[in-house]
Design a protein around this nucleic acid. Structure first.
Length: 482
RNA sequence: GGCGGUAUCGUCUAGGGGACUAGGACACAGCCCUCUCAAGGCUGGAACACGGGUUCGAAUCCCGUUACCGCUACCA
């Protein structure tokens, strides 16, 4: 048990061997929220001990992903590789205290035994007796410079802990083999390095994927042998693809960076992710980050793996786009407008009121940020392209349509002011005069203004296209029809 | 094979012995609103893996079966 006075400290410890995976991001989020909620520290440790697979590029991708999501950490990043000397000292200490022993068995011999056991259909478990040597034999081998690994001497009994998500989990120690802590080249094995680091970082709660459940008893044994406080553990479920298998490249985008580029809001990503394996206990789903911090509780953690559903992710994004204050939404979409070549940041800032208003009429019609840009494009262009299907559907009778558009144009040109109330009054009156339904004016007008059959409300379109350009577009449409 | 974990609508989940005719959300269908499309509102179909117990009573507790997942390395 931990001394209750210890400051809560959690960590996220990814290996830099790819990109920041959504599963990893969710684990990071849970840890981050926990630290925020209880007023503790959230630390980041890069587990770069696998030299072959670790890359600086991956490390950068992790930083980028964390930054995009807004998951910041306290203190300096810990690079596991830099702690090699301490890992070795801790492993050595195990040997000195008798908690571990030297194993001179050649690795090739172990591999042979293992292969044999597997062929016989059984499981190989290292037999401590095969490594037993007299003191004289040990001294002799040592003097001869024979290589050895250091193995942990698993004691009798049962190793158990009270997992924050699963409750009590127990492993009979007889099922745990004497595992290597220091290889014959003196490098630490994963469990050794992790425990050494978690002790040094004073971690009080280890919250990680449940694929680590079977590592936990080994780690607890290590903490005890090292005379350290055993932290609490919380093993959160995995994230699966729609086929129920572990989420992988086959399922499409698995890196958080992919979603950033797909036009997702970090707040929506966070909100969606947190709901995969956690719930508030009531029906609340759409939440801002402060609300998430306020409501987060490990008691709401789920045991079952969750399927990553991109459709719901996009719905969540739509909800966030609608609910967000415009001045918070704008910075997320502006770069996309600039990248699309529709306007420069300066131009957008100069017309901020117009731009925010445009975002406002478009955002409920989009699920992703880039969709807003697509819907907005024609508001920035001088000419419109008339979509063939739209023309076929709404301009069936060219002569009659031209007449209606002509009358519409005149009425709009006469409007005392360019506001939606005046437009509506004017055009509804025109419809009455012509003895037709409003839609008979609005629909052809929509095609004239946007080139499409789908758009925001027609008066908003007029307002945001602007008077001059609206009239120009009507002229172009009439010319097209003749 | 051994060990461990998990099991409620297609998906995310609520529920923790009686409030369950099992609630919400996404998706789907229909209706409403309406100038179109969204958004929004309403309605509908849709689930307790199976078998035994325990109990007056089980989605809920226990056992078993099945399925799925993870671990089973001198990988991380």
């Amino acid at each position: 048990m931990n001394a209750p006075s210890r400051r809560p400290r959690v960590r996220f410890a990814p290996s830099p061997t790819g990109f920041l995976h959504v599963g990893g991001a969710r684990t990071a989020l849970f840890n981050w929220l926990y630290a925020r909620k209880v007023g503790g520290d959230f630390l980041l440790r890069i587990e770069d001990t696998d030299r072959q697979r670790s890359t600086d590029e991956s490390t950068r991708a992790i930083f980028d992903g964390m930054a995009w999501l807004g998951l910041d950490w306290q203190e300096d990043v810990v690079f596991q590789g830099a702690n090699l000397p301490r890992h070795q000292r801790d492993g050595q200490r195990l040997l000195e205290t008798g908690a571990a022993y030297r194993d001179f068995t050649p690795q090739s011999e172990i591999e042979r035994l293992r292969a044999e056991a597997e062929k016989a259909g059984g499981a190989f478990k290292f037999d401590r007796r095969t490594a037993e040597l007299s003191e004289a034999e040990t001294a002799e081998k040592l003097a001869a410079g024979e290589p050895f690994a250091i193995r942990f001497k698993v004691p009798d009994g049962t190793t158990e802990w009270n997992d924050l998500v699963h409750g009590r989990i127990a492993f009979p120690n007889k099922d745990i083999e004497d595992f290597v802590v220091l290889r014959s080249d003196n490098t630490p094995v994963y469990n050794m390095a992790v425990v050494s680091d978690d002790i040094a970082m004073d971690i009080t709660l280890v919250m990680r994927g449940d694929d680590h459940i079977s590592n936990t008893p080994k780690q607890i044994l290590l903490y005890r042998a090292l005379g350290a406080n055993v932290p609490e553990f919380a093993h959160v479920p995995m994230i699966h693809g729609t086929d129920g298998k572990k989420l992988s490249k086959r399922h499409g985008a698995t890196a958080v960076g992919d979603y950033q580029h797909q036009g997702l809001l970090p707040g929506a990503m966070l909100n969606f992710l947190v709901l995969l394996g956690w719930s508030t206990g009531d029906d609340t789903e759409v939440m801002t980050l402060p609300e998430l911090i306020d409501r987060f509780d490990t008691a709401g953690l789920q045991k079952k793996a969750a399927v990553f559903d991109t459709v719901k992710l996009e719905w969540m994004n739509g909800q966030h786009m609608i609910a967000m204050p415009l001045d918070q939404l704008a910075p997320h979409v502006m770069p996309l407008f600039v990248a699309a070549g529709l306007a420069t940041a300066e131009e957008l800032n100069a017309r901020q009121e117009w731009f925010y208003g445009l975002l406002d009429i478009l955002r409920s019609r989009a699920r992703r940020l880039d969709e807003i840009v697509g819907l907005a494009a024609h508001f920035f262009r001088d000419t419109v392209e008339f979509d063939a299907d739209a023309v076929a559907k709404q301009w069936r009778d060219p002569a009659a349509t031209a007449a209606i558009l002509g009358a519409t144009r005149d009425r709009l040109a006469e409007l005392p002011s360019w506001d939606t109330a005046a437009m509506e009054a004017g055009l509804r009156a025109l419809a009455d005069e012509l003895g037709i339904a409003g839609g008979k004016i609005f629909q052809p007008l929509r095609v004239a203004l946007t080139g499409l059959t789908v758009s925001p409300g027609i008066f908003d379109v007029l307002l945001y296209v602007g008077r001059e350009r609206s009239l120009t577009r009507l002229d172009a449409a009439i010319a097209y029809l003749r």
